[in-house]
Amino acid sequence: MNGLTIHRKIEEHTGLLIFGILIVSAIGGLVQLLPVLNQESLETATSNTRPYTAAQLTGRDIYIREGCSVCHSQQVRPLIAELERYGPYSRAGEFVYDRPFLWGSKRTGPDLHRLGGKYSDDWHRIHLLDPRAVVAESIMPAYPWLDKRSAKETGNITAKFIALRRLGHPYSDEDISGAEAELEGLTEMDALIAYLQVLGTGLSGEDEGAAL
């Protein structure tokens, strides 16, 4: 067998084997990743999508820290039942300021992408402190420590804004210098609620018409 003779060469040379594995395994990744990473429509924000404010970004980092995305997805699929249950389906342009993305892979609890504006701030506060006080069936953990820590303790917000601006988020110098002040007097709970309330508010009427 000719093919096997060629293969014998590969399996007798360490370098050839390493090189072969590298090339053969890289092909699929290159074909998929390169076009996606260069596709502009995936980087174009929908009309109401804005970079996160200091409070919202801090809230998002708390959401990440507590592992909320382990049980809650942020991705409404274009299926009749999901449109009815959650709202308009998710568009790529709504996530352009999401580093990392938080779409999740499991819905132990409901999807949260269209959560913004559905409940009052007070509802969220009670729910996060004692989920079963507002939803009797809930199996969500309580987060009593969020109320006790100030939002400034979550991390250096100025450094975060600078890092994100380097990655291309349109923060102005005033945004960056004013970030610290925006967190003044806020608890981690306030910050998280600010994030939950902005979730899924990136669409306006024109996007909805255009994308369908």
Binding site: Q32, L33, V36, L37, Q39, L42, E43, A92, E94, F95, V96, Y97, D98, R99, P100, F101, W103, K160, A163, L164, L167
Partner: peptide, 12 residues
Amino acid sequence: YSLYAGAQDAVV
């Protein structure tokens, strides 16, 4: 913060 954002981050 991830070098990739949103949908691109998801694919990576």
